[in-house]
């Protein structure tokens, strides 16, 4: 198999090019320094700052593999942050590690319940995923606001701050969390049959059910994983700003997460998925974000760049473009491009 046919070739190439461009434009980009046994540098920042998006995008990958989508991740982040900080704020000793641990566990449990709710709507009631998760997307931030009493809860707690800004040995703790989650998901995919069963459910739910696959359980589980990971992302986000901001937490993150999944080569139609692809997708987005910031563009304007990225990627992946390229490659095929949309989907989908 030729290397450029590999599904991860283009995403990896894009990431490498992006890093190279940065390295040429600002040589300090690649510099990593060791201070007091902790690593610093632009690349390290990217790895640390990517943690929330990484977690959300990984959960999204699994949901998308089941032919679903989870729009509620941003709202779940907001709820999770609100729950955790309200507990810490209300406790007698906000600085105690025990308090923070309890807060984190409770917030993750709440996120798990929210994910289970989405899973219930999708797998038990059979509601379209976009619509089912739209409910929580709309209502979730309202719930978060109710929890914080309509305010932005701020707390001063060293163990909380550690989650986003601390170091475990030489690496940022937030990055370690990402690595642990990536490894765990990768292991589950490789070592158990969950990966292929999830793909089967995503490609043909009814055939899978009749083959004895517990489709309902797998779909339900995917939304629960997505919920928990979003909850974890919400805690990291809250830890970073040391506050629970129900409106800003995870704002538009569902869209960036979906973008990361698509960039990583996983089709939104469900089925075949790639954890590694999503990791690369997230890194592309985070590097691009850092690049835009470096260019001095106000961060509010950065969506324009992402819009162009999305357009470029979807056009590159579209069957029309591929057919056009194939035609350029030599096969004589008069009117091929013109008749593309008349062809049955099955034939162009490959």
């Amino acid at each position: 198999m030729r290397i450029w046919r590999h599904r991860l070739f283009w995403p990896s190439a894009a990431l490498v090019v992006l890093v190279a461009v940065n390295a040429i434009a600002r040589p300090q980009f690649l510099r990593i320094t060791l201070q007091d046994g902790e690593l610093y540098g632009a690349l390290i920042d990217i790895l640390r700052n990517s943690a929330p998006l990484m977690l959300v995008a990984l959960g999204m990958t699994i949901v998308i593999a089941t032919r679903g989508i989870d729009l509620s991740v941003g709202a779940v982040m907001a709820v999770s942050g609100a729950v955790a900080l309200t507990i810490i704020d209300g406790s007698g000793d906000p600085g105690a590690t025990g308090t923070v641990l309890v807060a984190v566990v409770v917030a993750l449990l709440v996120s798990l319940v929210l994910g289970a709710w989405n899973g219930f709507l999708v797998s038990a009631l059979g509601i379209q995923p976009i619509v089912a998760t739209l409910v929580l997307m709309l209502a979730g931030r309202g719930v978060a606001l109710l929890i914080t009493g309509g305010f932005i809860t701020t707390v001063n707690s060293a163990p909380l701050a550690y989650i986003a800004s601390g170091y475990l040995t030489v690496l940022p703790f937030a990055f370690i969390i990402s690595v642990v989650v990536i490894t765990a998901l990768g292991l589950v995919e490789r070592r158990t049959a969950l990966g292929v069963l999830t793909e089967a459910v995503g490609i043909n739910p009814e055939a899978s059910r009749l083959a004895g696959v517990r489709s309902r359980g797998i779909i339900w589980g995917a939304y629960m994983v997505s919920g928990v990971l979003a909850g974890l992302a919400g805690i990291i986000y809250a830890s970073n700003i040391k506050a629970a901001d129900a409106n800003a937490a995870g704002f538009l993150i569902e869209l960036y997460a979906i973008l990361a999944v698509v960039l990583g080569g996983t089709s939104l139609a469900g089925g075949k998925f790639s954890i590694a692809g999503t990791v690369i997708g997230v890194l592309i987005i985070q590097t691009l974000d850092s690049t835009i910031l470096f260019l001095g563009v106000p961060s509010a304007q950065s969506p324009v760049f992402f819009a162009f990225v999305v357009v470029a990627v979807v056009i590159a992946q579209s069957p029309r473009t591929r057919n056009a390229l194939r035609a350029l490659g030599g096969a004589r095929r008069p009117r091929a491009a013109a008749s593309v949309q008349d062809r049955p989907k099955v034939e162009v989908a490959s």
Partner: peptide
């Protein structure tokens, strides 16, 4: 097609 094979596997 609908209830038998899992086409992309």
């Amino acid at each position: 097609r609908g209830e038998g094979i899992v086409a992309d596997l």
